[in-house]
């Protein structure tokens, strides 16, 4: 396969995905209308505030939800298999081997009673036929790869003996142990200090380049997105509201939500005392409107006729897409006052 062919190879395709949760015997849609593609060699960031469904989305891809409480419809196409339809046994052949996952809180993500080497080795036991010696050697190699200074010593330690940054490196070692093509990182640096965050993000980027793999990066931190991602999906109330490359989304944001969010970041050069506040609040799962634009109540000065009844994605060219027609007529409230 040539370099350019691999470059455009699609690793994962999600089509019309809806995930609903059972609350008091009724199903509520946590995410819906999700269409996305991730290609080899790219980092796709999914950004949104808490409750927007970004974690639900990756848990659905990974099959981590309790099937008795969840209903998933649509397609998740991974290497020719639809993950929404395969058996648990087949899923186990993919998880850990072909898709690696990194979690938010590295302390609770590791079993407190098991040594580091056992926790990394477990994934090799599941997916390879390496001998015990080979596995142990691979564990040390992985620890070295994720930047652990003294792999031998760390291998014998327990999670509570390591710092937060080191624990996250262990979790990353587990995720990349079987050299997966695809890594899901769910808020991988939220629990870490800012200097450690920078190191972990650099490490992820280096690993992604080295293995020519793809990463879905879930985060609420726009700075992390801007520094790390190639492509960005912005989520609001269970739907993707804007898609584009990182330059399009940050330098030419279209959806009112993206624009408002970027505007509410404390700015370096802005002398203004007031930060921009988005009115209202995110609708809860039970109160999610069935039709209409979920963001409309938070920009009440925009006419109802500017919104769509069933907001759909609009292509703006060069892969930039935005949901609902309201972006065309959107302005900030104080702009009209001025």
């Amino acid at each position: 396969m040539t370099e350019s062919a691999t470059k455009h190879e699609t690793i994962l395709t999600v089509k019309d995905l809806t995930t609903s949760f059972k609350i008091n015997n009724k199903f509520y849609k946590a995410i819906s209308d999700i269409d996305m593609k991730i290609k080899r060699d790219e980092i796709l960031a999914i950004v949104g505030e808490s409750g927007c469904g970004k974690s639900t989305l990756v848990n659905s891809i990974m099959g981590l939800q309790d099937p008795s409480e969840t209903k998933i419809t649509g397609e998740i196409d991974f290497e020719g298999q639809d993950l929404t339809k395969i058996s648990e046994a087949d899923y186990n052949k993919i998880r850990g081997a072909k898709i690696g996952m990194i979690f938010q809180d590295p302390l609770s993500a590791l079993n407190p009673l098991k040594r580091i080497e056992d926790q990394i080795e477990e994934v090799l036991i599941c997916h390879t036929d390496m001998s015990k010696q080979e596995r142990r050697a691979r564990v040390l190699e992985l620890l070295d790869q994720v930047g652990i200074v003294d792999p031998k010593r760390t291998a014998h330690q327990f999670p509570h003996q390591l710092s937060g940054g080191m624990r996250q490196r262990i979790v990353i070692a587990i995720a990349i142990a079987c050299k997966p093509d695809f890594i899901i990182a769910d808020e991988p640096t939220t629990a870490l200090d800012v200097t450690i965050q920078a190191q972990i993000l650099d490490l992820l980027k280096d690993i992604q380049k080295e293995n020519h793999s793809s990463i879905i990066l879930i985060t609420h931190d726009l700075g992390v997105v801007a520094e790390t991602a190639d492509y960005v999906h912005v989520m609001y109330a269970g739907k993707i509201v804007e898609k584009g490359n990182v330059d399009q989304v940050f330098n030419n944001p279209q959806h009112p939500y993206t624009r408002s969010l970027l505007k509410s970041i404390p700015q370096v050069d802005s002398e203004s005392d007031e930060l921009y506040v988005i009115e209202g609040s995110v609708p809860s799962l039970q109160n999610m409107p069935a039709t209409g634009d979920a963001f409309a109540p938070r920009i009440p000065w925009i006419l109802a006729s500017d919104h769509e009844e069933n907001p759909s994605m609009h292509k703006l060219g060069h892969g930039h897409e935005v949901r609902c027609t309201c972006y065309q007529d959107f302005y900030f409230k104080e702009e009209s006052d001025a």
Binding site: M62, G63, L64, Y91, N92, K93, I94, R95, G96, A97, G100, M101, F103, D105, S108, A109, L110, N111, P112, E122, V123, C126, H127, V171, I174
Partner: peptide
């Protein structure tokens, strides 16, 4: 969370 990790490992 560590059981979730184990599931994600394919155990």
């Amino acid at each position: 969370a560590f059981v979730k990790t184990a599931v994600a490992k394919g155990v």
